[in-house]
């Protein structure tokens, strides 16, 4: 019952972010919505694992979180440089670097 309640909230958030991804005036709105949709999907998979009594689903959630991050960064890099193989040094601003590797 409580997992169903959590699932309802998560599904509502998924629907709302999907609406933003479809509406989004700029491409960055869509990427932001997609990234958030991925995060909510991770939560949904985790809750679903408990809902169906199969905690093995958590492995899938963990993997999805990784792929979601890499995918978002890849899309953004493609948008900014137009080439996935570009070396990061060609950026315009003297950036102090980002957290993940």
């Amino acid at each position: 019952m409580m997992f169903a309640a959590a699932m309802a909230g998560v599904l509502a958030a998924m629907a709302l972010t999907l609406v933003r991804a479809l509406l989004g005036p700029t491409v960055f709105d869509r990427v932001l919505a997609l990234n958030t949709f991925g995060t909510v999907t991770v939560l949904a998979i985790a809750v679903l694992g408990f809902l169906m009594g199969r905690p093995q689903f958590l492995d899938i959630a963990l993997l999805y979180a990784l792929i979601n991050f890499v995918g978002t960064i890849a899309i953004l890099k493609y948008l900014q440089y137009g080439d996935l193989g570009a070396s990061g040094d060609s950026g315009k601003s003297p950036d102090a670097g980002e957290g993940g590797r």
Binding site: F28, L32, V42, L62, N68, E98, G99
Partner: peptide, 29 residues
């Protein structure tokens, strides 16, 4: 495993958001 998922989300989500906002700024928005 739940803790690892949480840790992963807490490390990657600010990086992704920062990259996105920086990209939007560089994209002239």
């Amino acid at each position: 495993k739940l803790g690892l998922i949480g840790l992963l989300l807490f490390f990657t989500s600010p990086t992704a958001t920062h990259a996105l906002v920086k990209g939007a700024l560089a994209g002239g928005l």
